[in-house]
């Protein structure tokens, strides 16, 4: 197991060579904001919130997929990065119809936490006000596309951990929508095992337990971690 030494925000750390900057940072108590990243599923580098600066490389690099390197000087909190993060969060808020005050996830939402952490008090961009539907045809769960940030966690958790691949995206660009099966209402998606992993994976109030009232929905990520760890370490095989 080769070890690399590097600095993150001036702090000298060592990391295993197969680790990403994000993993190394987290192990050393340095927090880098993420949204699409979900432990146990593949990293896609889509939300761009974990972009970091690496000395000598002009491009910003996504910490979730960039491997550590010997002598790397990583900066996770420059003024430029902070500003970009804030812009990205503002773009997300302007893109769909997020109304925190009336949201099931209010107070427990990763997007809301991000907004607070980047110091966003309003979005400088115009609200797009897209027409988005709420689908609560599933017996136990619901999805409100107004609150979806298209992070794809539900798609990956369903495909990679549950193995059902009920979720996917349809369309593209700003018209991308999360869909179940052949764009049928969730309740009619034959492939859904109702396992609820997507509910736990969703960072916002987009996927929720049916019957949830405002601010009542709280995701429990440890349940996913448990399954992933148990599987990776084959804890279920005697």
């Amino acid at each position: 197991m080769a070890v690399k030494t590097l600095t993150i925000d001036g702090k000298a750390i060592s990391a295993r060579e197969e680790q990403t900057i994000l993993q190394a940072a987290r192990e050393n108590g340095i927090s880098i904001p993420t949204l699409c990243q979900l432990n146990g599923t593949s990293d896609i580098g889509a939300c761009r919130l974990c972009l970091v600066e690496v000395a000598g490389i002009p491009k910003l690099l996504p910490a979730c997929v960039t491997r550590v390197g010997e002598g790397m000087e990583v900066s996770t909190d420059s003024e430029r990065i902070r500003e970009y993060r804030k812009m990205i969060v503002e773009l997300l808020f302007a893109e769909r119809n997020h109304v925190c005050a009336a949201c099931v996830e209010n107070g427990h939402c990763e997007l809301q936490d991000l907004a607070i952490s980047v110091g966003m008090d309003h979005s400088r961009y115009d609200y797009m006000n897209p027409k988005c539907a709420v689908d609560i045809t599933h017996k136990r769960y619901g999805i409100d596309h107004n609150r979806c940030v298209l992070c794809g966690r539900c798609v990956r958790v369903c495909d990679e951990i549950e193995g059902a691949h009920t979720w996917d995206f349809q369309g593209r660009g700003a018209n991308t929508r999360t869909i179940s099966d052949m764009f049928v209402p969730w309740g009619q998606a034959a492939s859904c095992t109702s396992c609820g992993k997507c509910v736990q994976a969703c960072p916002t109030g987009a996927i929720f337990r049916r019957g949830s009232t405002v601010a009542e929905m709280q995701k429990d990520r440890t349940r996913l971690d448990f399954i992933v760890t148990a599987r990776e370490k084959k804890q279920w095989i005697a």
């Binding site: 495909d159 059902a164 691949h165 009920t166 979720w167 996917d168 995206f169 349809q170 369309g171 593209r172 869909i179 179940s180 099966d181 052949m182 764009f183 998606a189 492939s191």
Partner: peptide, 25 residues
């Protein structure tokens, strides 16, 4: 048509949501 897509999904053993996702991409 959706039923045609379903037929293809079943024949190629591809999840329906992926077929729909590709067809609309």
């Amino acid at each position: 048509e959706v039923d045609l897509l379903l037929h293809i999904a079943h024949s190629l053993r591809v999840p329906p949501s992926r077929v729909y996702g590709v067809a609309t991409f």
